[in-house]
Amino acid sequence: MIAWFSDPTHWTGSDGVFALVIQHLIYSGVALFFACLIGLPIGLYVGHTGRGVVLIAGLANALRSLPSLGLIVLLVILFGPVFASDMAFIVPSIIVLVLLAVPPIMSGTYAGVAAVDPAAVDAARGMGKRPLDILFDVELPCALPLIFSGLRSATLQIISTATIAAYVSLGGLGRLIIDGRAQNDYYQMAAGAVLVGALALLVDLAIGILSRLTVSPGLTRRL
């Protein structure tokens, strides 16, 4: 495997490691963006109002039991003919990534907002903060630790599933594994696996750092 990694032709070029990492990150980033766009507002709304708790809990459970591979394959066959060229597998793949990432973001956000000390919210109301100020000055910052933990599971889920989506031709590090399997090249598969694992760990670390920078030390109780 070391031999595989030390071959410079494996790193550069349109199907080199660098290009694959960039692709993996782009697809994951786009999926995460849309998942946040959907999950955050819903989680904030449900946490703030307390409406729809049962619905999102049920939704999260149901989506967790859906097999991601099956979903990707299903959507590719259903939507494939609708889109031209690469979009035929990119769009269905991204949809599945978003679908899997929304529940953790949504539940994390909801749980975070719901867990905010009711006394702090009452005090904020009593001193004359308007509802949106309460949401953004009090509830959101206090919910950040749980939002980040939701974001973390969502991101890992996305990176993991994006790897699987290589099976329906999606670019990214999964290519090394799927193509390696097709060519019976175990070293390429193992290299892909190592790279995906490393990517997941690095992204996880990055989110950890981001959360450390944005979450108030008053909440983490770190001195």
């Binding site: 006394a119 005090a123 009593g126």
Partner: peptide, 17 residues
């Protein structure tokens, strides 16, 4: 509400401030 000071049982301080 801004004209009226408000103090509650468990203080209700903002934990992140």
């Amino acid at each position: 509400r801004r004209k009226i000071g408000y103090v509650i049982q468990n203080a209700g301080l903002f934990p992140h401030r």
